[in-house]
């Protein structure tokens, strides 16, 4: 598994409803702005597998992650 340093998290604020699920799983990576839209506070805040759990947890598909192994951003495929 590559470290979080080789992964890129992408957010789509238009899909975000501010459920806060990402913060449950990766609280050092994600937070929300004052309109309850997701923001990345630290792209390396959590280990990669934790960020992947957060991407999977997003109920609206607002998060995606690209690693060195998979250069195309993958929507959560749970």
């Amino acid at each position: 598994m590559p470290g979080a340093g080789t992964a890129t998290v992408t957010i789509d604020q238009s899909r975000c409803v501010g459920s806060g699920m990402c913060v449950v799983y990766a609280p050092a990576t994600f937070d929300h702005d004052e309109t309850a839209k997701v923001v990345v506070i630290d792209p390396h805040g959590d280990p990669l597998e934790v960020v992947e759990s957060a991407v999977d947890a997003c109920p609206t598909g607002a998060l995606s992650i690209a690693t060195a192994d998979s250069p195309t951003p993958q929507k959560d495929e749970a």
């Binding site: 409803v17 459920s19 929300h32 309850a36």
Partner: peptide, 15 residues
């Protein structure tokens, strides 16, 4: 649903 949820979501964030 999105419009109404957006109105109250800030009060229910983890933060």
């Amino acid at each position: 649903h999105r419009r109404y949820r957006a109105l109250v979501q800030p009060s229910f964030l983890p933060a």
